[in-house]
Amino acid sequence: MPAGGFSVSAPLGTELEAKITPAVVASCVMAATGGLIFGYDIGISGGVTSMDDFLREFFPTVLEKKKRNQVRESKYCKYDDQGLQLFTSSLYLAALAATLFAAYTTRRLGRRTTMLLAGVLFVVGAVVNGAAKNLAMLVAGRILLGCGVGFSNQASKNFFSLAGPSKQRGIHQNI
């Protein structure tokens, strides 16, 4: 076995040599960020929606109810405010819609370009959310973040599934 590589057993009992190169590592790290940005957003948005400063700036009626202990918690919703629900759900709805378009973009532009586009959308969405002055800007930023998440989730899974050697992908000629 050559230095810097590892062997993978092929289904037919032959050995395939695979080298871990800087390009392979960079590609895997780039593709793995597709899931990372989704998880990061879930953690951040969940925490920020319970912060008094955030509620004071964007949802003052929710903060007033919270301070007066008038928040009626249910199994489904802590704060009964449609604007806050729009803020939270806009990312997920945008991600769902973007995933449908990401398949087309991946076919036309390729996996790497689609993942780069996802990263750009996510960064622009984060900047818009960071600069937000009102609910409309927050939702616009969340929609951009959702588009980034949708594109990255579709393209990165596709990238990972095709990154391995063709003999190891489960594709057989006699099917």
Rank of each mutant, 00 (worst) to 15 (best):
R72E: 04
P60L: 13
H172S: 13
L84P: 06
K78W: 01
Y40V: 03
I37D: 02
F59G: 00
K78A: 03
L36K: 13
V123I: 14
Q70M: 15
A10H: 13
L86H: 07
F160I: 03
L135C: 04
S90E: 10
R111M: 11
G141Q: 08
G119P: 03
G5W: 12
I143K: 11
D52W: 00
N129M: 12
V62N: 02
A136T: 05
P22I: 15
L162A: 13
V120Y: 06
N158W: 15
A163G: 06
F159T: 12
R68C: 12
S156G: 12
K157E: 01
V25T: 03
K78R: 10
V24H: 04
T88W: 07
L36T: 09
A26Q: 02
L116M: 12
V139Y: 05
C77Y: 11
L116T: 05
R72M: 06
Q85F: 11
D53P: 01
K19M: 07
A94R: 02
G39H: 13
K157G: 09
N158F: 15
D41G: 10
K167S: 14
S156E: 14
T33G: 08
V149Y: 07
G47H: 14
F58P: 05
D80F: 15
G146D: 06
L36S: 07
V128P: 00
T33K: 13
V25L: 09
D53I: 01
G164V: 06
R169K: 10
G125Y: 08
G34L: 01
S50V: 10
V149D: 10
L109S: 05
F54H: 02
S9Y: 04
G150H: 13
L135K: 09
L36Q: 06
G5D: 04
A98G: 00
L91D: 00
C77P: 00
G170L: 14
F59N: 00
F38L: 15
D81P: 03
V124C: 08
Y92M: 11
T88P: 00
S50F: 10
A94V: 01
V123Y: 03
T99L: 01
D80I: 15
T49R: 03
R111V: 09
G125C: 08
P11F: 11
A95L: 05
S152Y: 03
G13E: 02
F151A: 12
F54G: 01
I37M: 14
